[in-house]
Design a binder for these strands. Structure first.
Lengths: 341, 341
DNA sequence: CTGAAAGCGCTTACAG
DNA sequence: CTGAAAGCGCTTACAG
């Protein structure tokens, strides 16, 4: 069934049918009703491919995800989808499948140039209105993509101030440290990702500032720098707990490391939170179900996705926006891994 | 940049350019080289929208997911994506967002008819070559979708034998029960989903058959029927553990209930697996990190996704396939929650 | 308020 | 081996 056939049945021109379908010009109610009736009857769905070709716009957002199996990626896509649904956009999903090969080499974005270029070519040929690049880990992906299309990076960033970027605010690390201090903790260990990672860096600064503002002197031994993995969390926790003056609380900079930290403590016969408090970062699903429930930090990932999509929509409608960096605040989710003194 | 412009620069017809681009007819090497050179130079990407309109095929698979934030959904999409990447297909993703509203009303598929119909209309208008419907829970979704397009249901099923369906084999419940028996367990409790759910039903049969084959008489009190939730797992576990002759092992029919079961036991002061063995079903990520690691059942979700996509590809290429139901075997993933007697 | 006609960027049957 | 031309299903400037 095509618009032409509808027109024929209705005894009007295709022009008219198009007008009523898109409500783009005044059409008499009589004609409108007749056409709509036939459209419903036939359960006619206009061919959006044809429309797209004609108007040179697809209302399609290309989503390039480094790894769709990451929980953070999913929540971001969920947010994009929410926007898409409400605004008559569609999502073309392209997974780069990084995690298979990239484990613990997150920084080597250039190794994957080919894969990205290939995906970009596909998205371009599909005439997407814009592209959202979703990192699997918050890090510098400068130069990952070159295109004239509207483009936004989310859950990652670039060093080009002209790129659109949507992320969360690492300032929460300050708040979390302060939260621990307010609960009576003074000896706070921290398990961090690589020091050359910007989020690690920013969070470490938050941690130190909070300590400083509370008049607590920094103990450098309390800072364990590693690689984001469960295993590192485990070993770093052991090291911390074997110290003379062991911390009463550990702030792990992601939840996997927090799990490792907790399990190391438990394996040493310590109870959580009685003997050790542990907090994480990311609010992965797991933290809800573990014993005890993990106190951690939630990022507004759905909102980040929604806004990314909105930026694409605006940009492709030539609504200019001078703001390039969108940063959303995080929140502390309180569960059971923190002891109050 | 269009094919026409390429043709002009190369001094040949658009016909010829199209032939070399698609390798669809013999073209002299000389002309071919010239054209390809210009194509590379210009970094030209053919407009697939135009192509799709012309050939009436988009090489696009519409993926309708009841909830993309479910871990199972992600793994299935990952599998679809893998096929897509290797076979030059693309994915249009449509999330129904069921989990927001449907919690614990999984069976009421008809409540969501509108939402599904709407999504279907979009996918049709986008001229997808076929549709994969991904359930968020393995259950009957008969009549969810009516379309002439190639359609496969995965991680759910219908009562229409003409529908294409790809699922996993619940037979593994027999194997898991037997595994427990082989480890020396005779008193095995089971925490099940709703009895009117087919997977519950099938798994319960597997459990009973294994018991029967081992000459263990069934204790009906050991069968707790509930609703798949963590909370139910918790309360059912309590009930089981308060019995005179309490089970030495609990088989929870999903991992969330298994977590609930474990936590209930721990809250009663029991140790896992010394005092109680617990196994789950689903192999959600969490089970890897909890203490102790959860022994559970893994479904080949990526493979299910891959095959779903392959069915669509075949169907839309008019390759007929009499097989309608694809069923894949599951595997037991052994971790630390089972005690050996 | 309505319609005839051109054209979006491709592919392909046909002719040479 | 190569090209002129029709047509996929829409939208829209233009004319009436």
């Amino acid at each position: 069934m095509t618009l032409k056939e509808i027109a024929k049945i209705a005894g009007v021109s295709t022009t008219t049918v198009s007008y009523v379908l898109n409500d783009s010009k005044k059409v008499s109610d009589e004609v409108k009703d007749k056409v709509m009736h036939i459209v419903q009857e036939a359960n006619y769905q206009p061919n959006r491919i044809a429309r797209s070709l004609r108007v040179n716009r697809t209302r399609t957002i290309g989503v390039m995800a480094e790894d769709i199996t990451f929980p953070s990626t999913m929540r971001i896509i969920e947010g994009i989808d929410r926007f898409a649904e409400q605004n008559n956009y569609n999502i073309i999903l392209n997974s780069l499948g990084f995690s298979d090969k990239l484990r613990h080499h997150y920084e080597d974005i250039h190794l994957y140039k080919n894969k990205i270029d290939n995906a970009l070519g596909i998205l371009i040929s599909l005439q997407v209105d814009g592209i959202i690049y979703i990192g699997m880990h918050d890090r510098d992906v400068s130069g990952a993509i070159h295109t004239d299309k509207p483009l936004v990076y989310t859950y990652c960033y670039t060093n080009d101030p002209k790129d659109y970027t949507v992320t969360y605010d690492n300032q929460i690390a300050y708040d979390m440290t302060r939260y621990l201090i307010e609960k009576g903790h003074k000896k706070i260990g921290i398990i961090s990702g690589p020091i050359n990672s910007t989020p690690s860096h920013k969070r470490l600064i938050g941690y130190q500032s909070a300590l400083n503002d509370a008049g607590i002197t920094l103990n450098l031994e309390y800072i364990q720098v590693g690689n984001w993995s469960y295993e590192f969390g485990y070993s770093a926790s052991q090291k911390l707990l074997l110290m003379e003056e062991r911390p009463t609380a550990i702030f792990a900079l992601n939840d996997y490391m927090a799990m490792g930290a907790i399990n190391a403590a438990m394996d040493m016969g310590l109870n959580i939170p009685e003997d050790l408090s542990v907090v994480g970062f990311d609010n992965i699903d797991m933290g809800k179900y573990t014993r005890p429930g993990l106190t951690t930090i939630d990022m507004p990932l759905e909102e980040m996705g929604r806004v990314s999509a909105e930026i694409i929509a605006n940009l492709s409608a030539d609504i200019v926006d001078e703001k390039r960096d969108y940063i959303f605040p995080c929140t502390i989710v309180e569960r059971k891994t923190v002891r109050v003194f």
